[in-house]
Computed example of a mutant assay.
Amino acid sequence: MRILLTNDDGIHAPGLKVLEEIARQFSDDIWVCAPSEEQSGAGHSLTLTRPVRLQKHGERRFAVTGTPTDSVMMALREVMPDAPDIILSGVNRGANLADDITYSGTVSAAIEGALAGVRSVAFSQVYAREGMGDEVPFGAAREWGAKVLEKLIDVPLADRTLVNVNFPALPPEEVKGIRVVRQGFHDYSRGTIVEGRDPRGYRYFWFGLDPIEHTLDHGTDLEAIEDGFIAVTPLQLDLTHYSTIGILAERFAD
């Protein structure tokens, strides 16, 4: 089985090493193609206004000076001689839950794989507090990743779908199990923007990483993580709101 690994935290990210440990329990035919630098929050963006460069870091190991989407596209079209059997993205440093998936470069790399017709899975490790840098504990992902992946390798999936996996911020022995759940929703109304000034006196802004209010509906990824379970969520790429089609069709009928 040929496996492509990618992420949005960059080619040197600790989580990518964890993902490789997981993948090597299933195959030795491992390829890595990831951004050369961190691309968190890049979403499903594609680099169009500057050239993208491909850097070789070793046998079947490459970095791309672009986004996670760029990395998957380069891997499939330029790097790999044949398409992979599965694409694994992560293990992200931090959660990709609820509607945060729309910002996630980790999930977006898996989206690009799904668009290309390749089975794709995104992995993320939740952590308890911000500001941990590379000190995020990946124990839950490391110990449970293969158990989750084993179930996903050959399960039937519809076209243009992918699977999003989040590991709770717990030691491996305290993880309660695995739940298959739907996507939850956040309350973004309390987000902040932090203002400062650089040494030359010019203003700059950081998007704040304040705790976001969770809507812990039953059967969601947010609830599963809160309860100490691994959250496994199938996602689809069709964003159409079907119940509104008829309303709009009547409005534009004249």
Rank of each mutant, 00 (worst) to 15 (best):
M1W: 00
M1N: 00
R2C: 04
R2G: 01
R2E: 05
I3Y: 01
T6S: 12
N7L: 02
D8E: 09
D9S: 10
D9H: 10
I11A: 05
H12S: 12
P14H: 02
L16K: 02
V18E: 06
V18I: 15
L19Q: 01
A23F: 00
R24T: 08
F26M: 01
S27C: 01
D28S: 09
W31E: 00
V32K: 04
C33E: 05
C33Y: 03
P35N: 05
E37N: 13
G41Q: 10
H44Y: 13
T47N: 04
L48K: 15
T49K: 14
T49Q: 13
Q55R: 15
R61N: 09
R61I: 11
F62E: 03
F62C: 02
V64S: 07
T65H: 05
P68M: 03
T69A: 14
S71A: 15
S71R: 03
M73C: 10
R77H: 15
M80E: 00
P81I: 01
P81R: 08
P81C: 04
D85Q: 08
N92D: 11
R93P: 04
R93Q: 10
G94V: 01
A95C: 07
A98Y: 07
A98T: 08
T102E: 10
Y103P: 04
Y103I: 10
S104H: 09
S104D: 08
S108Y: 09
A109C: 07
A109V: 05
A109S: 08
A110N: 02
A116C: 10
V118M: 00
R119S: 07
S120H: 04
A122D: 10
F123M: 02
V126C: 08
V126M: 05
Y127C: 12
Y127N: 15
G131I: 07
G133I: 02
D134H: 12
E135F: 12
E135L: 14
P137S: 13
P137T: 04
G139D: 02
R142M: 01
W144N: 05
W144I: 07
K151H: 09
L152D: 00
V155I: 15
V155R: 13
L157C: 12
A158N: 12
R160F: 15
L162K: 03
L162T: 08
L162N: 07
V163F: 07
V165Y: 01
V165K: 00
N166S: 15
N166L: 05
A169H: 10
L170I: 05
L170S: 02
V175G: 00
R179E: 06
Q183T: 15
Q183E: 14
G184F: 07
R190F: 09
G191I: 13
G191S: 13
V194Q: 09
D198W: 05
D198I: 04
R200E: 14
R200Q: 13
G201P: 08
Y202N: 14
Y204A: 06
F207D: 06
G208S: 03
D210M: 12
D210F: 12
P211N: 09
P211K: 08
H214I: 11
G219S: 06
A224L: 05
D227C: 03
G228M: 03
I230W: 00
I230L: 01
T233K: 02
P234A: 10
L235V: 12
L235E: 11
Q236D: 12
Q236N: 13
Q236I: 11
D238I: 02
H241C: 12
T244F: 12
I245A: 13
I245W: 09
G246I: 09
I247W: 10
A249Q: 13
A249L: 12
R251K: 14
F252Y: 15
